[in-house]
Design a binder for these strands. Structure first.
Length: 891
RNA sequence: GGGGGAUUAGCUCAGUUGGUUAGAGCGCCUGCUUCACACGCAGGAGGCCGACAGUUCGAGUCUGUCAUCUCCCA
């Protein structure tokens, strides 16, 4: 094996091998129990960022684990067509050529988009491979594929025919830059420092009203002024006219409950075509809906002499003009939430326009029940509350977009008989009057209108398919909480509505990846860490493992580049452990590593020593623990456990212990047995680690020959613990684990003594251990070689009872002494022992107070009380031993 | 304004149904080129678990109030 691990080459090699050998692919016909996951489709315009890395690592860990457990696993990958984002990208490239999309025309433009998608659209899909994602690429889907488009049309037609889709004139969130309507979810609110302009509106026939507004330019579209009917101050104003400044219009003063008497002056200007609240009031009062803006955010002809100005320019001008006329009363600083386009961050303009909507209430009800009943579980569960909150207050979904890239709305209108209908296939003529003059709606659908079908459209729906029968409903959905509204909730609604069943059983929500100051990673802040840079620098395994190890369930994770050293160092450690084993095994080793890897161990019970038993017992324990963590989605705990298992248990202790037999060549049987145990444990460790570090484990699986050259660790059976017979035969008892742990405690204490007395690590020295009794003395005597090696001692003398005037430390098995003739600092030792005694007396005191408390003895569970009693005895013995030690120092 | 989350070692965080002496990684200090690994080994220092009150035999853990930070919704 190479001295250094070179992940770059190895990672590419194995990924190609996996993919070419179809290890990611599965078929319903293979049967078995299924485990299916659909990827949250990234935008086709997207490039891999840390959020994707986290999201897909989580999925890959789950998927690889289940695959090893023998499930028929399917992970469906793909991308969505990202209507607005993709159109923006292509429009930009057109602009670079000095063209606009309207010049090019719809058809040619769409050709350009497809062309772009073919060239650049696969970026993220390639990047996911770098990460090691074991998706079934043969089943990759795209929301604009024929099949998925058919699903969209089918769904639209069904909802349309059921009157769950309707068209109407409403205030929507409008992005003047993208030139389209957005759904409520796509308008992101940000708190901004704005202003509240107080404007004087002269009342016809004398007097005035002062209104306050954050958007003064909209006053050009005012069609009323409103006060609260209960408001004494303005009661006599109701019904009178106001002369709207900067225009020649007269508008009426109306009364409506909506007006908050406490806010501002208690007078509100009414702009029904530019504000959602005013819109509602306008409907109630039959006000005129005067639209003063164009789709691009400039003022239109209704704005009079302001026509053609940009909305923000117009705002300045309006304010200046009002000021000039003495109509500006004052300006307050005002902090408020302003909607921004989630695609381009432009300030969203509430705008009255004709759009298509889905009635959500009827769809929301079953979706609420699915989670209430526990059929679908969120993890962490607290997110269910967010989900309920949204669904209970759901509003209709604006699904039409005034762009070209996307699924065109399949609604047709006859020019002759004015019939409007939705059709699954492009109709040749009007089904009512057979007229040929029919036109299709110009708008396309929200991208999420195809994404919400993803769990079943990717499996072939609306066609019947074996995949749909076998893999639906899927098991887990892994995503970020910010997508609950956009996607999770809507998928649940769609699944229940069109499949008659939930789309997935578990929703696992992970946190957001942030920089080490807790800020979201963004291009504009320049604080992004590119996963590909990390892979380049540290390896994909390191990226994956580090992310998993530092991300606790459902919490945001703060990363900086150094964090990835965790995974890199771990990989190097494992590589070197494997290298060590290979060196020890040499070329002529006759160990059947393949049988060993699957747990067929021909162990000579008589040759087993306590550390061997400890290692095997711990291996068992970690298998159970790590499996349990994965079952509970506790991926961080799983990562920490495997790290501890390999690094601390295996490398630091067992491997060092094993050198005793490996480096001495006097007992070939022992040597062989130790190698068997090491290989068994290492093979289990590789399997447990594989979901987290797929590449390194595959490489070592082959290097160590744990399978045939054609076999992959991906399909190796997930480790299981030994059965009771084996446990008994080999003596893998709790007692032996406790003994070895206590022995290590003694060794650590001995090393500390060496360190305290500045004995050079290279220097051999002597130790004396006073065992607590003869039995323990016997055990330690049998372990003398281990003690000598681990303590770097020339001689370790085991005796029973008695105290010595030497530096010593108490352990459960006895006291370890460092014999130092004449060099002992008696005062320092005395001080040390006194401190120990004080500490233990402190503990004893709390134990006493507990046991002396009748209510504790009566109320606490018997085992807890018993525990305290044992502890009391233990502490008393310890203190007695320490007292004697102190006396031996003359204290 | 409504809701969620966080507050534990210098830093980033674990701590699952309350129960021995509160853990990890990084950083820090000391020593070490010890025959897999300096991306390493050995040893060590460092914590009134945000504040106050309550429940309990017992609270980092449960309840309430407050403070600070953060996210989502309006």
């Amino acid at each position: 094996m190479d001295k250094h691990y070179d992940p770059g080459k190895i990672e590419n090699k194995w990924y190609e091998w996996w993919e070419q050998n179809g290890h990611f692919h599965s078929e319903p016909s293979e049967g078995g129990e299924k485990f299916s996951v659909v990827i949250p489709p990234p935008n086709v315009t997207g490039i891999l960022h840390m959020g994707h890395a986290l999201n897909n690592t989580v999925q890959d860990v789950l998927v690889r684990w289940k695959r090893m457990q023998g499930y028929n696993v399917l992970w469906v990958p793909g991308t969505d067509h990202a209507g607005i984002a993709t159109q923006n990208v292509v429009e930009k490239s057109l602009r670079a050529e000095g063209k606009t999309r309207t010049e090019v025309g719809r058809e040619r433009f769409l050709e350009r988009v497809w062309q772009w998608r073919g060239e650049y659209g696969g970026t993220i899909v390639r990047q996911l491979r770098k990460l090691g994602a074991s998706c079934d690429w043969q089943r990759e889907r795209f929301t604009m594929d024929e099949g998925l488009s058919a699903a969209v049309t089918e769904v639209f037609c069904r909802l349309y025919d059921e009157d769950l889709i309707y068209r109407g004139n409403y205030i929507v969130n409008w992005c003047p830059r993208c030139h389209t309507a957005l759904s409520d979810e796509e308008s992101e609110h940000q708190d901004e420092n704005g202003r509240l302009w107080h404007i004087r509106y002269p009342v016809k026939g004398g007097g005035e009203l002062v209104v306050a507004t954050t958007r003064p330019e909209t006053m050009l579209g005012d069609t009323a002024v409103a006060v609260n009917p209960e408001d004494e101050r303005y009661r006599d104003m109701i019904g009178r006219k106001v002369l709207l400044p900067l225009t020649d219009r007269e508008i009426t003063i109306i009364a409506d409950d909506y007006v908050d008497r406490e806010f501002g002056t208690g007078v509100v200007k009414m702009t029904p075509a530019h504000d959602p609240n005013d819109f509602q009031v306008g409907k109630r009062h039959n006000l005129e809906f005067l639209n003063v803006m164009n789709g691009d955010g400039t003022m239109n002809e209704s704005a009079g002499r302001y026509a053609g100005m940009d909305r923000f320019e117009c705002r300045k001008q309006v304010v200046a003009d009002l000021d000039k006329q003495g109509l500006l009363v004052r300006i307050d600083e005002h902090r408020h939430a302003v909607g921004h386009c989630y695609r381009c961050d432009t300030v969203v303009e509430p705008r009255l326009s004709q759009q298509w909507f889905v009635r959500m209430k009827p769809l929301a009800q079953p979706a609420l029940e699915a989670v209430h009943s526990g059929k679908i579980k969120f993890s962490p569960q607290r997110w269910e509350k967010t989900y309920f909150e949204w669904l209970e207050n759901i509003r209709d979904w604006c699904i039409s977009r005034q762009i070209w890239w996307g699924h065109r709305i399949p609604v047709y209108t006859c020019a002759d008989c004015h019939l409007e209908w939705a059709a699954r296939a492009t109709p040749g003529c009007c089904p009512q009057c057979e007229s040929l003059t029919i036109t299709q709606d110009e708008d396309v659908l929200d991208t999420w209108f195809s994404s919400w079908l993803w769990p079943f459209s990717t499996l072939g729906w609306p066609e019947k398919s074996a995949e749909l029968d076998f893999y639906y409903p899927t098991n887990d959905l892994v995503t970020a909480p910010e997508i609950i509204f956009f996607w999770v909730a809507r998928m649940i609604m769609a699944g229940l509505k069109f499949m008659g069943d939930i789309p997935f059983e578990n929703v696992y929500l992970h946190g957001t990846v942030r920089d080490d100051q807790g800020r979201k990673m963004s291009k504009s802040l320049g604080n992004s860490i590119d996963p590909l840079d990390i892979i380049e620098q540290y390896s994909a395994d390191a990226l994956r493992f580090s992310l998993m190890q530092i991300t606790s369930t459902g919490m945001d994770v703060y990363v900086n580049t150094e964090k990835f050293e965790i995974g890199r160092n771990f990989a190097t450690k494992i590589w070197n452990a494997a290298r060590f084993m290979r060196m020890q095994m040499g070329d002529e080793c006759d160990i059947d590593t393949q049988a060993t890897a699957v747990g067929k161990l021909n162990l000579e019970t008589a040759l087993l020593r306590p550390d061997d038993c400890h290692m095997l017992a711990m291996c068992n324990r970690y298998i159970v623990d790590i499996t349990g963590h994965l079952e509970k989605y506790r991926l961080q705990d799983g990562a920490l456990a495997i790290y501890d298992f390999i690094w601390n248990q295996f490398c630091d202790w067992y491997l060092e212990y094993a050198k005793l037999d490996l480096n001495g060549d006097d007992d070939q049987q022992r040597r062989r047995q130790v190698l068997v145990i090491m290989n068994y444990v290492f093979a289990q460790a590789l399997k447990l680690l594989h979901p987290y570090m797929p590449f390194l484990t595959e490489e070592l699986w082959h290097q160590m020959e744990y399978g045939t050259v054609d076999e992959t660790v991906m399909k190796a059976p997930w480790p299981t613990s030994f059965n009771n017979d084996q446990m008994t035969e080999w003596g893998l008892s709790d007692a032996v684990v406790t003994y070895v742990d206590s022995k290590r405690e003694l060794i650590t204490a001995g090393r500390a003594l060496r360190s305290d007395y500045n004995i050079a690590p290279s220097k051999f020295t002597d130790f004396i251990i006073e065992a607590v009794d003869h039995e323990v003395a016997g055990e330690l005597q049998n372990d003398i070689e281990c003690l000598k090696r681990m303590l770097r001692a020339e001689r370790v003398e085991i005796t029973v009872g008695g105290q010595r005037a030497m530096p010593g430390t108490l352990g459960k098995l006895g006291t370890i002494y460092l014999p130092l003739e004449g060099l002992v600092d008696i005062n320092a030792e005395r001080e040390r022992v006194r401190n120990e005694i004080e500490k233990n007396r402190g503990f004893l005191k709390t134990v006493h107070s507990k046991l002396g408390n009748e209510r504790f003895v009566n109320n606490a569970p018997a085992e807890v009380v018993e525990q305290q009693r044992e502890r009391k005895v233990e502490l008393e013995q310890t203190i007695a031993r320490l007292d004697k030690l102190l006396i031996s120092f003359g204290g």
